[in-house]
Amino acid sequence: MNERVQIEHALRTGLENNEFYMVYQPQVNDLNETIGFEALLRWNSHELGVVSPDRFIPITEETGLINPLGLWVMKEAFTQLKAWQDMGIPACFQGVAINISPYQFSQEGFVEQVLEAVSTIGVDPRLIDLEITEGLLVKDIPLVTSKMQMLKDIGIRFSIDDFGTAYSSLRYLQHFPLDQLKIDQSFIRDLTDESSSQVIVNTIVSMANHMQLSVLAEGVETRREKNILLTLGCTRFQGYHFARPLDKEAATEYLYKNTPMLVQSPNH
């Protein structure tokens, strides 16, 4: 309880003191080309030192602080994406994924916030991938669908994060304008030892193919895991085997060193 009170107090001044920053973990394809980044929030508190997202994100959701913090994350990621856009986007690069909390998504003005940020910053919305969780899809289905569709209409993509770990509302998937399923890393860790995990991954890939969704495996840490995933039909990966989360300078270097030289124009 004391730790929670400490974190909540420190959170309230963290944004004002510029204690938060973003890192970017590469997402690659079977040719080892960088196809995207996942934007990840980090916090180095003046008061508490480095605080893990697992410790502070739940508190931001309980207190409502997720809304200003989530908006800051979105604008920060959009701004970095616009910088890459202005440099010329490599041909295979599809954009940046940003985690959206169910609490943030459920706010009445969420869609308007996204539209305003896209317009103000000038980022190409087709380079934005918003990651949501399975649990969000079983709440107010008409409202969730409406919000997603308004953003989809300007080109924003949607992925389901940690797919397979929550209430898998498979019969609802067809109702939502989704683009990608992200296989949770818990299945990847068990790939080499448990045939059941291979069956699950194979089932997810097969289902996604039938629904014309792409699939990305999270938490890939070894070459063997990557090779097993390839045999199961998964060709998009994220994990320490390829790269740890990188600061924006290192991410920029990684992007332009690990992708073909052919680039899209900034207006693509």
Rank of each mutant, 00 (worst) to 15 (best):
R4F: 08
R4Q: 14
V5G: 00
I7W: 04
H9S: 07
T13P: 01
G14N: 01
N17M: 07
N18I: 09
M22S: 07
V28R: 00
D30W: 04
N32P: 04
E38A: 02
A39R: 09
L40H: 03
G49H: 04
G49W: 02
V51T: 09
D54S: 13
I59A: 09
I59F: 10
I59G: 06
T63F: 13
T63A: 01
T63C: 04
G64M: 04
G64W: 01
G64P: 08
G64H: 01
L65N: 11
N67S: 10
N67C: 09
V73C: 13
M74N: 02
M74A: 06
E76H: 12
F78C: 05
Q80D: 06
Q80P: 07
Q80A: 03
L81D: 00
L81M: 14
M87S: 12
C92G: 10
C92L: 02
G95L: 08
G95D: 10
A97C: 10
A97W: 14
I100E: 06
Y103K: 15
Y103T: 14
S106G: 05
Q107I: 00
E108L: 08
G109H: 13
L115F: 13
A117Q: 08
V118L: 12
T120Y: 07
T120W: 08
I121S: 00
I121R: 06
P125Q: 08
D129Y: 15
L136W: 05
V138A: 13
K139Q: 14
V144Y: 05
V144M: 07
T145G: 05
K147C: 05
Q149F: 07
Q149D: 03
L151P: 12
L151C: 06
G155P: 15
S159C: 04
F163S: 03
F163M: 08
T165K: 00
T165Y: 00
T165N: 01
A166G: 15
S169I: 00
H175F: 02
F176L: 10
D184L: 02
D193L: 10
S196T: 15
S197G: 09
S197I: 06
Q198R: 15
V201E: 14
T203L: 10
S206K: 11
H210T: 05
M211P: 02
V215Y: 10
K226P: 01
N227I: 15
I228V: 13
L230Y: 03
G233P: 07
C234G: 05
C234P: 07
T235P: 00
Q238W: 12
Y240T: 15
Y240Q: 15
H241S: 14
L246V: 06
E249M: 11
T252D: 06
T252R: 09
L255Q: 06
Y256E: 09
N258L: 04
P260Y: 12
P260N: 03
L262A: 05
Q264A: 09
Q264F: 00
P266C: 03
N267G: 02
